[in-house]
Every structure is written in structure tokens, then in C-alpha cells.
Design a protein around this nucleic acid. Structure first.
Lengths: 219, 219, 219, 219
DNA sequence: CGTTAACCGAGACGGTACGTCTGGTCTTGAA
DNA sequence: TTCAAGACCAGACGTACCGTCTCGGTTAACG
């Protein structure tokens, strides 16, 4: 099952065990009468956003431009998304989750290193990462975008998974949230402050993270 | 020499021992004849930007709005600054530097803790910090702003000063730049990703940083 | 036969002795099978137009607004009327005919005066008259509305009846059509050009009309 | 002197003895600073309205369309005119005045006949007349347009001139305004109600008008 | 002590995105 | 087949800001 479901103005992610809900959703939402939403229009819009971001840059990602590129009425865009940030988010979140999900490694250090490599690749080189950085940027001066972003903690979630797997939540001397900040923070800062991502050494950063935890344990 | 040029002409900091330079500057720039630049207009614009950002939020910071608020012609704004990012930067950089400069403490841990407290205060609560976060945001999808920001590494510079003072450059097992990322990163990520700054514990973060360095040394 | 067709299907007046026709109409239109047209929807729409015109003004008379107000689907409106002019016409024509029909008076001058009074009341103060003026307005730049209006010469018909009764067609020195223009024209112009209807003196206008005819006779 | 003057959002007509005022107007309006209004843009817009009305009909006369056709920004149109009715009015009023001004004839009957011929030509066949009819139409359901039209009584003014010349105001048994309604009314009604203008006989209408006045005098 | 060139305010200009609105059409499921 | 509901495309609405461009008027160093 590859379908996604959505509700008006919210973004619902792909989830295997959601099939049943989807049926209910559709029935509830569609509620008796009315032309059903055009799946074609929806995907055309999401693709248009992706394409525009890649080809023309963030400045060209415009509600008007999206509609034009998607061959869709402007009203249709506004009907389902309030801001371009919402479209951008929905268009990139699936890719982002995939790019940030790393398969487990035997060694905890390898595991964390692999994750940091993925994180760097995502933030510095991936289109989805570019969208994400743009959204983080907007969030700094737009409360609506900030709320949108906080509704789905992409980076935090992905880091939590890896940390739990590599360290084990029971072994953590600090709350999981703070651990994610220690793991992600230096890389996040390095890239968002415009520094060269090639100078980052994932394995060293992973080691730093482990040393932190060990030092905190021995207190 | 403490001065740096990053606007079309010159950004003059308010340092007493700079008067002479300014004279020279003026002479050089001014060519022969002509009305000199109005210092009154310049400060009015910078104050207008500050005020607008505080009172009306980032959305109201508009070239048009700035000019109106400053009681200045739109042309006069464009004559001296290309983007609103430049004005915002110039308007907040002095405050930022002051807020990020902490007086030395006896103990390295106290020193670092004091710095992190200042950093948190700056990023999470200060108007200048709000401006800085907005600029970092813009930089994610505007190369010009990115270049502007990288011309004056506010956070990096301030951290470097403290690290050198607390640790000593000779004692560092890693390049200074990477050390700043370890120190700043977690806080930077925490705040820019919209988390509650009150949950940060500066002293623990400072300890983490020191442990990192010690662990690296013992390798 | 009192019925006239001018909409796509049929405009049915509310006359008791028309029931049979309606039945026939329905049968004819209905073909075989299918849900019959909802009389409820039809009257709801006509009433909605009336109400909107009165309460919100002509600008609010919108196909969408009519449907909403009538609690009816947009499609249902379009199914039976092409333009909003058609609905407006159908909604006001009955009222208009009643308002323009004056009971005979003993004296020709009284008869004509009574008619002109009704005409002024209709054009200047009646809701149906407002609708009619709006339609005349639209007709100036919309051929379809012009054709619609000319299909039912409300003013001309009502004037013809009165003139025939007061003067007698045999006594007319000019064609009936031209006589109606002489009778109606000054009032029509006065009101449609935005002048104050209170300044009109129906009895004097009636006298003018009679003098015209007498002068023409004596030639 | 062929220039016109204008003030913001109002229409000022051509007037010989206005030269002096114009100077004052320009000085006053332009009031110290600011780029002066582009006469080129203004005439381009007025011509565009004329052209669109002729070529594409009233439906195509759109603020957007006008701007596009005139090669002018939309904002520039809105800066000087609120409604498209204002532009239409300003664009056609000069032509209208010229078309409705008839040179005096020896005989009063000839004078009035010539005027009615001009009136019929204007209302039924002239582009300026088409614009005028459209405006009268809009005025029936738009108070702003009604006010605009009443600010310059095109038809009334032209008729008054002729009546005064042909009859003499002293000889009128009724107010001048009412006389104009008697003269214009029948023709106005005939054409605006969609009847064939060729069936009008100006000389007979002129006679009717004269007979009216004579009959009123002899009371 | 007048030139003169760059400054300043005001504000009109062409462009273009914004978010909303209506016009018509189409597609559902129920009656 | 009609109905209510409502999504669809198309495109005009009026507003806002962008960056550029005239204007008339000011001002201080230069000659």
C-alpha cells in the first residue's frame, strides 16, 4: 500500500498500519455528496513544487508559479494548502524520512557514523534537505511555519531511532531529546551557518557523542 | 584594525579611535564637491529597522516600510544598502557582538557556562538574536545573504574568543573551528528547531564540551 | 393563452387556470423516467433573487449567491436559467405587470395620470422596478439580455393597454408604438438619468401627451 | 488650447477659460516633489479603453485588459481612476460633447430637428454613445457610477443649450429641466429599450415638443 | 562667494505575487 | 433524471511591495 491520506490543511504521513483509517477518513471527509478531490491535481502540485525548487530555486516557488506549473487553478492550491511552506513540507517530508533512515550496523559507532553521514548528505546536498533548510529558515520569522515544522520533528525523530538502537534508551544518562541535540547540533550548526560540509568528519562527531554520554555516566 | 567593509560603502562601527579613518573614508568616497551623506538619514534607517522588527515583526520589515518609518526616501535606502538583509545585519551586528562578549571568569567551566548563557539569551530572547536568526533563515535560500553572513562570523568569532581564553589554543586537540561547532551546535540546533530554550542547561553543555576535548586528548 | 415561453424551458405564471398546462408541460418535458423537477427548488431560487436584490443590492445577485441563499446546488440554477438576468426577469415580471396595470378611470386624463403615477412608482420605488432598471442597464451591453427584454415589452404593453382604453386606437394619429414612447419617454428618461422622481408631475405629463395627439390630429 | 487638466479621481472637462487654473492646478497638485504624472500613460489608457470597447465589446473592458492594452502597469490605472466607469466616462465625454453640439439653424424647428438627429446618431450609432449607454446602465445598480454621471449631465446640458437658443428661456412655460425631458425622453426611451432607431422621425418629435410648449402657454 | 555635483524628499512608473471572488463545468451518491 | 454538495479550471479583482526613474530643492566643499 503506497497511498497517502490527508486531511484538509494537515499533512498525514505514510503509515503501513493506516489502511483502515484511510477508509474511514475518506468516508468521513467525503461526507455525502460533492466531487471527490482530484488525486491527479494533488500529485501534480507536489511534483511542481519539487521541480520548481530544483530548477528555478526557492524564489520561484510561488503559489502562482506552482499552480501554473502544475496546470492547476490557483484556487485548487489554496483549497488544500494555506502556505507554500505546507506544500513544500508535504512534498519533501517523505523523501526526507527515507534519506534519514539508515539501516542498522553491527557496531554502535558505525551506526551513529552512518547516521551522521546521512544527515550531512541530507542537509548539505539533498533537494529534500534544501527544502527543509528553507523551511527552518522561514520558521525563524513565521510562527505558522514554526508550528508546521514542530508538528513533525524530522531530524529529532530520525536521531532518536538511531540513538535508541545504538545506545539503548535505558543506558542514556540524559533525556533522549537532549541527546539528539548533542548528536545533531554540531553538524546542523556547521551547515546552516554556511560552512563547508566536506570538512565534517562523521566518525569523529560520533565519537564525540559517545564520549559525552560516557562522561555523563561516570559523574 | 577592527573595521571591515561589507556594504557597498562602509559600515562604520561606533569606535572612538575610528574617527580618523572615517575622515579618510569620507575624503576618498566623496570625490570633489557634492553634498555629503546624511548621517541623520543613516541612523534613522537603522533605528527604523530595529523598531519595525520589534513592533511589527519580520514581515513588516520592508524596504518601503523602512523608508516610511525613517522619514526617508526609498531611493536613499537603496543608495546605501542593496537588500533589507544588509540593513538588518548592520542594525543588529553591534548589539550582537556586545551581547555575545562575556567578561572572563576565573574558572574555564564558569567561563564557558557564562558564554553559553549569553548565547542562549542572544538566540532565544534578544531582538538582535531574532534578527540574526532571520538572517540565517534567509541565507538558506539566498546566496547573497549567505555571503553577507559569512563575511562576519558572529557566533564563531565570539566562541573562538572564549575557547582560546578558557582552554588555550595550544591545548586544543582539534581545529578551533570544529571546537566552536561542538560548543555552539547543540544550543543552536535546539533553538533554531523551535524547542524551548528554558530546557537548556548551560553548565551541562559546557561540561560536555570539556569532556569532548579531554576524550580527544587521551586518544 | 396566457403562457409565454422565454426561458430554456418554461416560465410558469401562477394562474389557477394554468394547472393543466403545467401538467402537460411537465409530462412533455419529463420524457420517461427520472426524477421530476423540484418546484420547491424553483421557487426558492426566485425568492432568493428577490431577497438578495432587496437586502444586499444588485452586486450580491450572483449565481453562486443565489444558489447558496436558496439552499440549492449551483448546477440546479444553471440547469434552468442561463443568465442571472433570466432569473431576475422571471422573478420580477409578475410583480411588474401587476404594478403597471391600473384600473380604468372615467376620464381619459385621469386614466393616463393614474398610469403615469404607477409608472413612476414602479421605476423609482418598486423592487421589481429596480430589477427592471438593472436589466435595461445590462441590455445596453449584453445582447442576450437585450433579446430577453425585447421578448416581453413590459412598459410598452402596459402603456398600450392604457392608451387604447383612454384614447381608442382608431383615434390615434400615429402608430401605437410611437404614442407609447411619447407617453413613457419623459418619465423613463427622468428616472433613468438619475433625476429626482418627486419632481415629476404625472397630470402635466398626461396633458402633454394628449396635446401632442391633438396637435397631430389637427395637421 | 487643446489640453485638458485633471485632478486625482475626478474628471475635469475641457474649458477655454481654464488656462490660468491649469497652471495653478499643476503647481498645486504636483505639490513639491515627486515624479510628475506621465501624460503618455494617461492617453494610452484612454485610447485603450476606446479601442477595447469598439473591438471587443464592453465585456472586455477590464481594468486588467486596459492596463495590458495600454502597455501600462495595473497600479497606474488604479492610481488615477477608481472604477472602469470613470475611465470610460473620461474617454468618451469629449467626443460625446462634440457629437451633441449642433450648429444653430435659422428656424427653431430646424434647430431642434438637427439636435434630435444628432441625439439619435449619438445614442444609437456612435461609439461614445455606446459608452454612455453602458454607463447609464451601470448607474442603475451602482451608486458610484450614478454620482459620476450626474456630475456631468451630458444629455441635459446639450438639450438645454438648444432649447434656450430655439425657444428662449423667457418663453418657456415650464422649467428648463422638464422641457429637456420632453425633448429627449421619447428618443431616449425608444433606443434604450432596444427599439429600432431608424423608425424615429426627428422632425415629428421636434414638432411634438413645440406643440407641447404652445399648449402649455395657452392655458 | 558663486559653482557644482551629489545629496535628499516625494512619488509615479512597469512588474508581479498576493489571496479572494465569481463564472461555468464536472463528478460524486442519494432520491 | 434530478438534486445537493462541492471540487475543478479560468481569470478578474484590488492591494502590496519590488526596484527604477524623474522631479524640485538642499547643501557643503571647490575654485
Amino acid at each position: 500500500m503506497v497511498e497517502e491520506t490527508w486531511t484538509r490543511y494537515t499533512v498525514s504521513m505514510y503509515c503501513e498500519d493506516m489502511e483502515m483509517d484511510m477508509h474511514m477518513d475518506k468516508d468521513r471527509e467525503h461526507g455525502r455528496g460533492g466531487r471527490p478531490r482530484s488525486e491527479q491535481a494533488r500529485t501534480a502540485i507536489l511534483h511542481a513544487v519539487d521541480d520548481l525548487l530544483l530548477e528555478m530555486g526557492y524564489a520561484a516557488v510561488t503559489m502562482k508559479g506552482i499552480a501554473q506549473r502544475a496546470g492547476v487553478s490557483r484556487q485548487t492550491v489554496y483549497r488544500w494548502w494555506s502556505h507554500k511552506a505546507e506544500i513544500l513540507f508535504e512534498a519533501s517530508v517523505i523523501d526526507a524520512q527515507q534519506e534519514l533512515a539508515v539501516s542498522p550496523a553491527a557496531d554502535p559507532l558505525d551506526d551513529l557514523t552512518a547516521y551522521l553521514e546521512a544527515l550531512i548528505r541530507f542537509l548539505a546536498h539533498s533537494p529534500a534537505g534544501a527544502a527543509y533548510r528553507a523551511l527552518v529558515g522561514e520558521a525563524q520569522h513565521d510562527a505558522a511555519v514554526a508550528k508546521l515544522l514542530s508538528s513533525k520533528d524530522l531530524l529529532g525523530d530520525s536521531a532518536r531511532v538511531v540513538i535508541e538502537r545504538a545506545i539503548g534508551e535505558g543506558n542514556l544518562p540524559i533525556p533522549l531529546d537532549q541527546a539528539t541535540a548533542l548528536l545533531i547540533g554540531p553538524t546542523f550548526f556547521w551547515i546552516l551557518s554556511g560552512r563547508n560540509a566536506d570538512h565534517l568528519v562523521p566518525r569523529e562527531l560520533a565519537k564525540d557523542f559517545i564520549h559525552d554520554l560516557q562522561a555523563r555516566l561516570s559523574h
